[in-house]
Amino acid sequence: MKKQIIALSIILSAMTINAQKPLARAEVFATVDQAVGNIAFTNEGDLVYSHHPFFAPEIRVVKFDKETNTTTPFPNLEWNTPRDTDDNYLSNVLGIRNDENGIIWMLDMAQRNDVTPKIVGWNTKTDKLERIYYLPKSAVPAISQPNDMVVDTKHGYFIIADEGIGNGGDGSKAAFIIVDMKTGKTRRVLEGTRTTKPENTPTVINGKHLAVNGKDLLIGNDGITADANFEYVYYGPLNGTKIYRVKTLDLVDETLTEAELDQKIETYSEKPNNGGMSIDKEGNLYLTALETKSVAVVLAKDRNVHTMIKDDNLVWPDGVSYNHTDGYMYVSAAQVNHGAVFNDGKDKSTKPFYIFRFKPIEEGVSFR
């Protein structure tokens, strides 16, 4: 009975989001030939984004030239070229963020190559490598899939959302990975706990379940963002009905036990099954609503879910990020559900792939 009530609640929530009039207009910013994952920006506002790793792209990360509608490998071709002599290259990147110092931080999940997962920081001001943070097996076990992160330059931490679906993982061991920017010390916290593991809320798009070999794919800790002052981290499993928040200083506090930390987590709001997450300076949360070709927003004033934008070409909206130079939120349409693994071995994705943008309700948070 409880499962039926949950399922009905999810259906009604999706119906409500579908029925709402969008609060903003979706504008096509660009069309490209490969699936776009997550988007970051240089200080000048140029887009730097990951090609979605689900489609095993040859070039992992690119910089986009709006004038010519073309891309170039970022930071260069060498960093996008796997080799056996060293591991100073990008293997498998989805999560990508920029900070106020002009550094683009790229979260390399590895997996495609026999290299250690890492965070690579490239300084766009000097056009040089800033630093590499390696992620050890103690923090990134085989089932890990480090998906997205907060770059907290105020307190000095990377806070990574790990979906827990790597190498056959079923999401039940999803977690956070905390990296100290000064020392490089890396910890795994809240693995398989109530707020990081997925709920039994399958992803259903156009009536079709997102499944592998007939089994629903349930994804853990996924969307993540932090407010403008890095006071709170907001997060939730992709497959789940709740957004949670926790004070950043509690999440990175090594003296807290898992049970003590869990007690400090607040259930913030309801949500649809979502991928990326962003926030504006008034605390409105923007969520890519995978099942409804839309971006939802949880308004700070009432913590209710509303439709922000919607478009028929917004197929599997993935990352959503704010560009401080033009005041727009940018969102990718990755078509992940059209990939071969979900369609009996046939890749049903079609060109072009879209990058949309829209005006947020309030000024967005650029660096988080």
Rank of each mutant, 00 (worst) to 15 (best):
H209I: 14
A211P: 02
V212R: 03
V212Y: 05
N213C: 01
G214R: 07
G214W: 05
G214Y: 10
K215F: 05
K215L: 06
L217E: 14
L218P: 01
L218I: 01
I219K: 08
N221G: 09
G223S: 10
D227P: 09
D227C: 09
A228Q: 14
A228E: 14
N229P: 10
N229W: 11
F230K: 04
F230S: 06
E231L: 12
V233K: 08
Y234K: 02
Y235R: 04
Y235C: 03
G236P: 09
L238V: 05
G240M: 06
G240S: 10
T241D: 10
T241I: 07
K242C: 00
K242F: 05
K242S: 07
I243E: 08
I243C: 06
V246W: 12
K247V: 09
L249G: 06
L249C: 08
L249S: 11
L251Q: 13
D253T: 11
D253K: 14
E254H: 11
E254W: 08
T255M: 07
L256G: 13
T257I: 09
E258D: 15
E258H: 11
A259L: 15
E260D: 13
L261F: 10
D262H: 12
I265S: 10
T267N: 02
Y268N: 00
Y268A: 00
Y268L: 03
K271M: 07
K271R: 13
N273K: 03
N273W: 02
G275A: 14
G276M: 04
G276N: 04
M277I: 08
M277W: 09
M277S: 09
S278Y: 00
S278W: 08
I279W: 03
I279T: 08
I279K: 02
K281G: 01
E282W: 07
N284Y: 07
N284R: 04
N284I: 05
L285Q: 03
L287G: 04
L287M: 10
A289Y: 08
L290N: 10
K293L: 09
S294Q: 10
S294P: 08
V295I: 12
A296W: 03
V297L: 05
V297K: 06
V298H: 05
L299H: 11
K301H: 12
R303Q: 11
V305P: 02
H306V: 00
T307N: 12
T307Y: 01
T307C: 14
M308C: 01
M308L: 04
K310N: 10
D311S: 12
D311N: 14
D311P: 04
D311K: 08
D312K: 15
D312T: 12
V315P: 00
P317T: 00
D318Y: 01
G319C: 02
S321C: 01
N323D: 06
H324K: 11
H324A: 13
T325P: 02
T325D: 02
